[in-house]
């Protein structure tokens, strides 16, 4: 049945208006802003902003700090993604065994970090990682290991951030893998057992290939999420020491909302979007090959 336009407007109108104002128009405004030199002076009067073409991008690609931020962010992605996948996969396989006890307890425990506020728990982690009073170094000390100055040492700062990132993400991905595992029919494993397959063979030749849709989804979400790294370095290190933990979004925030170089910050946003979009497409293409 055709619906009359009055009702269509009533039902879709509010949502569409909000999407236009807060998403669609701003996206295009961003594409325009990144071509201007919108800065503090323009904050006072918008007419002070001038159109500068691609100058922001040219400057950006010569900006050492920006490259540092890109490098740091990809370092986080490159380490955190495989580690999260491995840990989540391991946990979910162990939880999926019939004989495993206390499943509800483990699931709840794994899930807690995911729903926890990043800013608040980062404050806790900052103290756990404290070189003198931290629980982590005390624990390492028991085993006779002298823990590093986690957040103060440029070498260890990013690994510390990654630790928090992974800690937060493992539970969520465990639940996703668990849902994927439960979709694998039992008879495949039974057939493999009759053929004398070992547990390892079953995992390698049945579980992993059949989990592929979940793996593709999980890694795609990680690419999108990890490239937007912000709260962890903002709270733990403010990007330091020596910019070792400066991430792309943290740099965007600094340029945009500390120095009010909003045109320049917009160009960072556009580059970030292009990175996320191209990596996501690449991942989905690779995932869909067979």
């Amino acid at each position: 049945m055709k619906t009359n336009w009055f009702w269509i407007l009533v039902f879709i109108g509010p949502a569409l208006a909000l999407l236009l104002i807060f998403l669609i128009i701003p996206i295009f405004a961003s594409l325009f802003l990144c071509l201007t030199d919108f800065n503090v002076r323009a904050m006072v009067n918008w007419s002070n902003a001038k159109f500068v073409g691609f100058r922001n991008f040219i400057e950006l690609f010569q900006d050492e700090l920006f490259w540092k931020a890109v490098l740091n962010t990809f370092y986080c992605l490159a380490v955190a993604m495989p580690v999260t996948v491995c840990l989540a996969l391991m946990n979910s396989v162990l939880l999926n065994r019939e004989q495993t006890k206390l499943k509800t307890f483990f699931k709840t425990a794994f899930f807690l970090p995911f729903i926890t506020n990043t800013v608040a728990i980062a404050v806790v982690w900052a103290w756990i990682l404290n070189p003198h009073y931290g629980v982590l170094n005390w624990l390492l000390g028991i085993f006779g290991i002298e823990g590093p100055n986690w957040l103060g040492d440029p070498k260890w700062a990013m690994p510390s951030i990654i630790m928090l990132v992974v800690w937060k993400a493992v539970g969520y991905n465990t639940i996703l893998f668990l849902a994927g595992l439960q979709n694998i029919p039992d008879f495949l494993y039974e057939a493999a057992e009759l053929d004398g397959a070992s547990s390892w063979q079953k995992f390698w030749y049945i579980t992993l290939p059949l989990l592929k849709p979940t793996t593709v989804f999980v890694t795609t979400m990680m690419i999108i999420g990890y490239l937007q790294l912000f709260e962890e370095p903002y709270m733990l290190t403010q990007g330091g020491p020596l910019n070792a933990t400066l991430s792309i979004v943290l740099y965007l925030y600094r340029q945009g909302f500390k120095f009010f170089n909003l045109g320049y910050a917009s160009s960072i946003a556009v580059v970030l979007f292009l990175m996320i979009a191209s990596l996501t497409i690449l991942r989905l293409k690779l995932g869909g090959q067979d």
Partner: peptide, 13 residues
């Protein structure tokens, strides 16, 4: 619009 990260709209909004 689902594919666009929040930072894209942050500054204009």
């Amino acid at each position: 619009t689902l594919m666009v990260p929040g930072q894209m709209t942050l500054i204009p909004v």
